[in-house]
């Protein structure tokens, strides 16, 4: 695996008009991190979902509209929180950079 894929995950087969998609990639330097875990927390900080990153470091959530926090856990790394706002019919792309 060399370098993170640019442009995010393919949305083929997803009816974007009906979904509030939050997706992105976890990287360390310019390398994707395939064994990280990304959690989606709702506006009150409550856990809503979690996915492991793919071989290319990508992740995706079908969130509802509103404010969310992405919490990323990875081996030998501090936990990173990032706030995002999702809307039905839009795709939010996020890059999580691990130190």
């Amino acid at each position: 695996m060399c370098g993170a894929t640019e442009g995010g995950l393919s949305l083929d087969g997803v009816d974007v008009a009906k979904e509030a998609v939050v997706q992105g990639v976890v990287t360390r330097g310019d390398q994707p991190v395939p064994n990280a875990y990304v959690r989606l927390l709702d506006r009150s900080g409550e856990f809503t979902a979690e996915v492991p990153t793919s071989a290319t470091g990508h992740f995706r959530f079908f969130a509802g509209p509103g404010e969310w926090t992405l919490r990323t856990l990875a081996p030998k790394s501090e936990t990173i929180d990032k706030k995002v706002v999702a809307e039905i019919g839009s795709v939010v792309e996020v890059t999580v950079s691990l130190s």
Partner: peptide, 18 residues
Amino acid sequence: RSPDEFAGRLLAPAHLPQ
């Protein structure tokens, strides 16, 4: 389930299509 599923704001966990 998550609060949003409980309340009826989502139908499935947020990593799955709704």
